[in-house]
Amino acid sequence: MAAGGDHGSPDSYRSPLASRYASPEMCFVFSDRYKFRTWRQLWLWLAEAEQTLGLPITDEQIQEMKSNLENIDFKMAAEEEKRLRHDVMAHVHTFGHCCPKAAGIIHLGATSCYVGDNTDLIILRNALDLLLPKLARVISRLADFAKERASLPTLGFTHFQPAQLTTVGKRCCLWIQDLCMDLQNLKRVRDDLRFRGVKGTTGTQASFLQLFEGDDHKVEQLDKMVTEKAGFKRAFIITGQTYTRKVDIEVLSVLASLGASVHKICTDIRLLANLKEMEEPFEKQQIGSSAMPYKRNPMRSERCCSLARHLMTLVMDPLQTASVQWFERTLDDSANRRICLAEAFLTADTILNTLQNISEGLVVYPKVIERRIRQELPFMATENIIMAMVKAGGSRQDCHEKIRVLSQQAASVVKQEGGDNDLIERIQVDAYFSPIHSQLDHLLDPSSFTGRASQQVQRFLEEEVYPLLKPYESVMKVKAELCL
């Protein structure tokens, strides 16, 4: 049975990233139509530049190519590739079939990587351009969430054990800070992308030097003109047959890092959902379990974690691919890159769409948070109580021993009897502590235990987050809708 299948058929496997999760716009960027249309555009740009620099290419040939950029006979191309065992030459023939007058000058002087690699770089750039505003929107939604809850005390956790208090907004800023680093890295790697350009079979530009009869300047002009037509500021000066596969490492490393950030955020949300302090959106008709109707599973956060793990592992592909590119190139890269580049971007696209949807509907339960604080705060307040007693004339050592005994009794009630923490009640009825009984409410005010959390939130948002989001103001209103 021949390899390949009808990918629109229910009898043929289709990647869930495309069929179930990723956005239509990201799927289109990695589609065959987008790819092969870009090949034709690159052939047109090459012909236009070659004509401008004096090669015998007519206006009629150029116009014929322009008129057929979208006229792609995919069936013919597939048949040609089956016959020739070469995808680029299959599309040269297919393009030439609908451009008979231009057929002889299509791909003039070029090698397969002229269309293959340059198209990949265009796709990487455009895919990054799709991700950047999506990530900015996630940051914006979380920034709104953090600002609104900047002063809401909550129990902090280290080692997932109760620690000092923080605020809900401050905790959210930990998430935002990681995503801001990801946004900066995505922008950097996007701006650092260079075009492969017009380089020939081993990167020496020998074929173009021959076409222009040894004119170095025209060869350099050709490279520059096509690079500018493709919208790049610069091209690699040095290439082998391909652009260095280190570029793929750079791009997928940034995406993998984004995956790590999203995994951490969504894990926190899942843990908070278990504590009943916070939940992701839950639709009115949504079913959490087929057997347990009360369940409210954090399905979206779980999906993000599941896909983020996949995204983090994909960076190993370009690392290994770059390491086995012998001399000017081997074909070890080809099949692998067809999979890992598309999957990385479709996965990143999915987790950003999902995280935006989550961040637009996060639900906080202040009463649950308050109750958990009441359970733990008495123990945390013991040092403040000791200091207040010393100020009232008591002995630190005597007070410490009193607190120690009462704390152990209260802990026994919590752990052995399943009761509430009654340390404060014990202190309130103990005559030894009568000098500070009137101060206990103040000493137990949760806001006095959150330090500068709310001020940190305000400063972080104003100095770091809002300036970073400013270039994306025009796209901030787009909502994230999930079908599944």
Rank of each mutant, 00 (worst) to 15 (best):
A2W: 07
D6Q: 03
D11L: 11
S12A: 13
P16G: 12
R20Q: 05
R20L: 01
R20I: 04
A22G: 11
A22N: 14
M26H: 02
F28E: 08
F28H: 11
F30A: 04
D32W: 07
Y34N: 06
R37T: 11
R40K: 06
L44P: 00
A47M: 05
T52G: 14
L53P: 02
G54S: 10
L55C: 12
L55N: 06
Q63K: 11
E64M: 09
E70F: 15
K75E: 13
A77V: 14
E80G: 10
R83V: 11
R85C: 06
M89C: 07
V92G: 09
H93G: 14
F95G: 00
P100S: 12
A102G: 09
A103M: 13
A103N: 12
I105V: 13
L108E: 01
T111D: 00
T111N: 04
V115M: 07
V115L: 14
V115R: 02
N118L: 02
N118T: 01
T119N: 04
D120G: 07
D120T: 07
I122S: 03
I123F: 05
L124S: 12
L128M: 11
L135D: 04
R141M: 15
L142T: 09
F145N: 07
A146H: 00
S151Y: 11
P153L: 01
P153R: 02
T154D: 08
L155D: 04
F157K: 08
T158S: 13
P162H: 08
T166A: 06
T167F: 02
V168F: 06
G169S: 04
K170I: 00
K170D: 00
K170L: 07
R171I: 00
R171H: 05
C173W: 01
L174M: 15
Q177S: 15
Q177G: 14
D178A: 05
C180L: 13
C180V: 10
N185A: 14
L186S: 10
K187L: 08
K187V: 10
R190W: 09
D191C: 10
L193K: 03
L193P: 03
R194E: 02
F195W: 07
R196H: 15
R196V: 08
K199H: 00
G200M: 01
T201V: 09
L211H: 06
E213A: 14
G214D: 12
D215L: 08
D215I: 07
D215A: 14
H217A: 12
H217P: 11
V219Q: 06
E220G: 10
D223R: 01
M225E: 12
K229L: 09
R234S: 15
A235P: 15
T239A: 15
T242D: 07
T244F: 03
R245A: 00
K246Y: 03
I249Q: 06
E250L: 11
A256G: 12
A256F: 02
A260G: 12
A260R: 04
H263Y: 05
K264A: 08
K264S: 06
C266F: 08
D268M: 05
D268L: 01
I269N: 02
R270Y: 03
L272S: 10
A273G: 15
A273L: 07
N274M: 12
N274D: 10
L275D: 09
L275G: 06
L275K: 03
P281N: 12
P281R: 13
A291W: 02
M292T: 02
M292V: 01
Y294P: 01
N297Y: 04
M299I: 13
R309C: 14
H310L: 09
L311G: 03
M312Y: 06
M316T: 14
L319D: 03
T321Y: 09
S323Y: 04
Q325A: 12
L331H: 00
D332E: 01
A335R: 02
I339N: 11
C340E: 03
L341V: 14
E343G: 13
F345P: 03
L346T: 13
D349R: 04
L355K: 04
Q356K: 03
E360V: 00
L362C: 09
V363E: 05
Y365W: 15
Y365F: 11
P366W: 06
I369S: 13
I369F: 03
R374P: 03
R374L: 06
Q375D: 05
F379K: 04
A381F: 06
A381C: 07
I386E: 04
I386P: 01
I386C: 10
A388V: 04
V390C: 11
H400N: 03
E401Y: 08
E401C: 06
I403F: 08
R404W: 11
A411P: 04
S412A: 11
V413N: 13
V413P: 03
V414S: 05
K415F: 04
G418M: 05
G418E: 01
G418C: 05
G419D: 09
D420I: 05
N421F: 03
L423P: 04
I424A: 15
R426G: 07
Q428G: 12
S434M: 12
P435I: 07
I436M: 07
I436G: 04
H437Q: 11
Q439I: 11
F449R: 07
T450K: 07
S454I: 10
Q456I: 08
Q458D: 15
F460W: 06
L461H: 00
P467I: 11
P467H: 05
L468H: 07
L468S: 15
K470R: 14
Y472G: 10
V475E: 10
K479T: 15
L482R: 06
